[in-house]
């Protein structure tokens, strides 16, 4: 029993990363019908920006000689990285995708992959091959409740993730920008006829998705402090799988499938040797998609009316 609970907590943490990243894929898909294959590397860049921000903040507070509580530094780090990374998302949309809006989707996908490679190798070129370790901004405290061990960081990671998801939900449901996004996801061709420019909504969507990926990057850095230019590749692809599993364009689906993916992976590793983990976990997902090819909340392919 403790063993299962232990893994439940691990799965929630692991699933948080997938869910936060998957949301970015889903949001962009829902309004532009394209998958932003740069997204995994935006996550990586977010983690590095967070690393940079934390390092600078630590240096500044140390040199000025004031002591700032770790949680405050962490919040600042997350906010700074979310802001700067959302800027990166806006640039990716502007430079990479907007010129290709009417081009075949394959061109946009290839462009996305190329920008991703540029971010990875650019990082390598600028920072070199050495790996950085994410500074520990808060002390790790381990709790033991009835034989189940968990740290304050795990609680924090899951808590911050869920909080950001609820924030996103409220934004999409209640704000006028969220309303425009919902409209765009329903029928993006008619949106300009309402006097609303796609060039306002699209960058906004990239910005939000990138900010969530940045948050995921920092939370990931808290749990697994070693940063690597290619850290976003596998995690990005797996989160993309979560976005598909949730249903293309479904926000709720992406979040749930992200956590489900975490659970499938962790519990597969609980039963089978960890070298078989991904093989078995993704065979299970393949089977699910065989029976539900459009995912949990996605719509079957429909022939949309064209203007």
């Amino acid at each position: 029993m403790e063993f299962v609970l232990q893994n439940f907590i691990n799965a929630m943490q692991w699933g948080s990363f997938y869910a936060l990243i998957a949301l970015g894929y889903s949001m962009v898909y829902s309004i532009l019908m394209l998958f932003n294959f740069t997204h995994g590397d935006i996550f990586m860049t977010g983690a590095y920006i967070g690393f940079g921000a934390a390092t600078v903040l630590l240096f500044l507070t140390a040199s000025v000689g004031i002591s700032v509580p770790g949680w405050l530094l962490l919040i600042l780090t997350i906010l700074i990285s979310m802001m700067l990374t959302s800027l990166l998302g806006i640039i990716v949309e502007r430079v990479g995708y907007r010129p290709l809006r009417d081009a075949p989707r394959a061109s946009a996908a290839i462009t996305g992959l190329m920008i991703g490679i540029i971010l990875e190798t650019g990082n390598l070129a600028v920072l070199g091959a050495r790996r950085f370790s994410f500074p520990s901004l808060i002390e790790t405290v381990t709790y033991n409740i009835g034989g189940v061990y968990f740290t304050n960081k795990k609680i924090l990671i899951v808590g911050v993730s869920l909080f950001l998801m609820l924030l996103l939900h409220a934004f999409i449901r209640k704000s006028r920008w969220g309303m425009a996004m919902r409209a765009m996801s329903y029928d993006y061709q008619v949106v300009p006829l309402m006097g609303v420019s796609l060039n306002m909504i699209a960058p906004m969507t990239f910005a939000i998705g990138s900010a969530l990926a940045a948050a995921a990057g920092i939370l990931y850095g808290m749990a697994y402090p070693v940063l690597d230019p290619y850290m976003g590749v596998l995690l990005g692809w797996k989160s993309f799988v979560a976005a598909i599993l949730g249903g293309r364009g479904s926000i709720l689906g992406a979040a749930l499938a992200g956590f489900l993916l975490g659970f499938i992976e962790i519990f597969t590793a609980m039963i089978f040797p960890s070298t078989l983990r991904d093989l078995i976990a993704y065979t299970i997902i393949l089977l699910i998609l065989t029976f539900r090819p459009y995912g949990f909340f996605g719509q079957p392919y429909t022939t949309q009316l064209r203007l």
Binding site: R176, M179, A180, R182, A183, S185, Y186, D187, Q189, V190, L193, M194, G195, V196, S197, L305, L307
Partner: peptide, 20 residues
């Protein structure tokens, strides 16, 4: 074919039209 935003309420459809 009208092309309403079927996932938005009546009021939201009107508000979106006034967005800009």
């Amino acid at each position: 074919g009208r092309r309403l935003f079927g996932n938005l309420t009546v009021i939201e459809n009107l508000k979106l039209a006034a967005f800009a």
